[in-house]
Amino acid sequence: MAKKKTRKAPEVNAGSMADIAFLLLIFFLVTTTIDVDKGVLVKLPPWSEEEPETIDMKTRNVYSVLVNADNQLLVRGEPQSVKTLRENAKEFIMNPNRRDDMAENPRKAIISIKNDRGTNYKTYLEVYNELKAAYNELREEMANRKHGKSFVYLPKALQKEIRSEIPLVISEAEPTNFGEEN
């Protein structure tokens, strides 16, 4: 009977494993860019070739914001600063004092932005952001008042309800063309 030879396979030296791993690690460390893309989400209106129907809106329901080429704001015919825009817009939308020159109710309120081709993008985005913030704050307040919870923690159905209660309507007009473009 042949003698059974039990030969172990030679072990691979794993000592350099750490070095290889280090090398890869450093490669990924260097190439990594941890940047999440964040931004202001908007939905553009669909394009149509036909002239849109002109809908008569009551002046009291329209919150017009004009931004000129010098980045100045004209809100409902009066100059304003971006800093006061948010509070002002909130008051217009909710109309807590039932004034007859502000929105009849939040569902009828419309915000209209018109800018110039020479307006700085920075200013435009700031204005847009403030108006969106006004709506978000109003929704948040309503969620707290009605359900005692923050808007983001509400179930989808309730969120939808509040959204339809205070719908975000921002209409953007064709920009004017007075200012200098860069």
Partner: peptide
């Protein structure tokens, strides 16, 4: 300035790409 941005936005609308993130 907004001129070029407006043109891009309009092109996006014409192409049916309506979800935009600034």
């Amino acid at each position: 300035t907004m001129g070029i941005v407006t043109d891009v936005k309009q092109k996006l609308r014409k192409s049916g790409q309506l979800k935009v993130n600034y």
